[in-house]
């Protein structure tokens, strides 16, 4: 069969989501943010929620998330997204309100806002991108940076005696009575992308249904910060990140999932 017979609108099985703006993303090649943006745009489109969604963008690489997904957005101060989202949702209870935050934003400077929004059981979805590094400022140590991991501020590797331990914030959030759904996903393969998409969709459905806070952590890469190619970053992530941050549901329907091991 000739290519021009195949490439025909009737045969199209995958296309750029309509809610993803035409702007070329500012992210580095291979960045996980792009994939997560794409699946969020797909979900909002599939759920017919464009008119009913308010996104809260963080400070960090995803500060410009509002340039890409075609819904109303507010750009929060560093770490404060869950506070904004709490008020937005309470004042506009019919809206889907979600935050999009990186590890520095959510688990360092915004720890208090994150934990208290989740503990109040705010009816919001928190999308948390954990790539274990500060990407935007040039690859400094994040709260989630692994022990031994080299960053601009841990040039000889993270030492717990100097820098403390990597913070597993999703496990902490799962312990809170206000969270309904806490899950850890990845987006480095087609299969994991599909799972992550289901997880984010579920988080959005939970928020709209008023079930409390849902948190979807996406373990991602930062090839520029990690100083590896995108493919090598994915492999490094599988080898090192998943040990500290294993994929899977931590809590569902308000129940903590026991460790499978």
């Amino acid at each position: 069969m000739e290519l021009n017979q195949i490439i025909n609108p009737a045969n199209r099985v995958y296309a750029r989501p309509a809610l993803l703006d035409d702007n070329t993303m500012h992210y580095c090649p291979g960045c996980s943010h792009g994939v997560v943006h794409k699946i969020i745009a797909e979900i909002i489109e599939e759920m017919g929620l464009q008119e009913n969604t308010i996104g809260v963008a963080p400070v960090g690489c995803a500060v410009f998330a509002y340039n890409y997904i075609d819904v109303d957005w507010v750009e929060a101060a560093h770490g404060r997204a869950p506070a904004l989202a709490s008020a937005i949702q309470r004042l506009n209870p019919e809206k889907l309100v979600f935050t999009y935050q990186g590890d520095g934003d959510l688990a360092a400077i915004g720890t208090a806002e994150t934990i208290h929004a989740a503990n109040r059981g705010e009816n919001i979805a928190i999308i948390f991108i954990n790539n274990a590094i500060y990407g935007m400022t040039g690859g400094q140590m994040a709260p989630t940076t692994l022990e031994g991991q080299k960053t601009a501020t841990t040039p000889y590797g993270r030492r717990v005696d100097l820098n403390g331990y990597p913070l597993n914030i999703s496990n902490l959030l799962a312990q809170l009575d206000g969270t309904h759904y806490v899950t850890r996903q990845a987006v480095h393969t087609a299969a994991t992308v599909r799972k992550a998409k289901s997880a984010i969709k579920k988080a959005f459905q939970n928020a709209l249904a008023g079930k409390g806070t849902s948190v979807v952590e996406v373990v991602g890469t930062c090839s520029s910060g990690w100083k590896m190619t995108p493919d090598a970053s994915n492999k490094w992530m599988e080898q090192h990140m998943f040990e500290k941050y294993p994929l899977g549901d931590l809590k569902d329907a308000g129940e903590i999932i026991p460790k499978s091991k």
Binding site: A83, S86, A112
Partner: peptide, 23 residues
């Protein structure tokens, strides 16, 4: 809506979020 926040930092950012929606 009346809400006791966890800090003044959170309070003012709740105000920021709410104000962004025209409230």
């Amino acid at each position: 809506v009346v809400l006791q926040a966890e800090s003044e930092i959170s309070s003012i950012n709740m105000v920021y979020g709410g104000a962004a929606t025209g409230k």
